[in-house]
């Protein structure tokens, strides 16, 4: 502090500045607002946690007792041997249908809407329609599934079958796939596209090499949410022919026949067991909920790992 500054004397306003800078005002508004937000968070978390505790209290013991047997056994009217094996199988099949039908079609539709379609009235109407479809209640899709896949397309689906249920679920989540994909595509900066076109790439080359890789993590995230939704959705399956019984297991039954036969799904089992009057089935229902949650967590985890790998590679 010597040398050049030595010639300067201390500022006489020092005390006044110190007083002005001191934060002595209570900012009541800010504290209140913060407390309010915190309370909102606690309420949301509290509801979730209490639900989880309730489920684990009622079903945890049952699940621990039955162990692997509960995961593999078929549904039964006898609570001591009833299990969710067929439900897990059915739900995974439904997810498979979603992967096979909703994803390719939904992602393709989104690429078309965002990248190729000209901005006409028709495109705008289509866009709005897709957005509204995503908000249509699941039960309405159940009715659609009943009318189209169970009744009209019965010769192909076999009526109340896992094919009808899977296609109904695919139709249900397709608008969500379209929307999340379209949002990810829209988030790709224009500069990246222009750079691609600037070196003489065709539209498809720009989309294939730059737009899709850039949007991929976003598309993946959307897909994760979609799969969870498809796994847990119940209402459309109730209408589209899911039954408590589960898959037919007559010996000599081919794959097509099995797919065209009766089916069940994990959320359907939860729904049906929870309606039973006996206490044992209530416990079984809670145990099935735990299995459902665990599988959804597992699926999400796997999808997140996949996404991260994809991001890094790129």
């Amino acid at each position: 502090m010597t040398g050049r500054t030595a010639a300067l004397r201390e500022s006489p306003a020092q005390d006044a500045v110190r007083r002005a800078l001191a934060g002595n005002r209570m900012q009541l508004g800010q504290i209140w607002f913060q407390a309010l937000l915190m309370a909102a968070l606690l309420v949301a978390l509290g509801v979730l946690v209490s639900l989880l505790i309730d489920v684990f209290e009622r079903g945890g013991q049952m699940l621990a007792q039955r162990g692997v047997d509960f995961l593999t056994a078929s549904t039964s009217s006898n609570p001591t041997i009833a299990g969710v094996g067929q439900g897990i199988f059915g739900s995974l099949l439904i997810v498979l249908f979603v992967l096979l039908f909703a994803f390719p079609v939904g992602i393709g539709a989104a690429i078309y809407i965002e990248e190729y379609a000209r901005d006409t009235i028709l495109t705008r109407v289509l866009n709005t329609a897709v957005r509204n479809l995503a908000g249509v209640p699941a039960i309405v899709y159940g009715l659609l599934g009943l009318a189209v896949f169970v009744i009209i397309a019965a010769s192909f689906t076999g009526g109340r079958s896992v094919i009808a249920g899977g296609l109904t679920m695919a139709a249900l989540v397709m608008p969500i796939v379209v929307i999340t994909t379209a949002e990810s595509l829209r988030a790709v900066p224009r500069s990246i596209r222009e750079a691609g076109f600037g070196v003489g790439a065709t539209k498809w080359q720009v989309i294939r090499h730059h737009v899709l890789p850039y949007a991929a993590p976003g598309i993946f995230t959307g897909s994760i949410l979609t799969i969870s939704r498809a796994f847990g959705e119940t209402a459309p399956l109730v209408l589209a022919g899911g039954v408590l019984g589960g898959f037919a297991t007559r010996p000599g039954l081919g794959v097509v026949e099995t797919l065209q036969g009766p089916y069940t799904a994990l959320p359907l089992i939860v729904f049906n067991w929870a309606r039973q009057p006996s206490e044992e089935f209530r416990q079984l229902s809670a145990a099935a909920i735990i299995v459902l949650l665990a599988i959804i967590l597992l699926l999400n985890g796997a999808a997140i790992l996949l996404r991260n790998r994809f991001e890094k590679r790129w």
Partner: peptide
Amino acid sequence: RRRIGMVFQKPNPFPK
């Protein structure tokens, strides 16, 4: 565009 190249205002390398 293959014959007439372009350099943009904001540097826009591909994220590759």
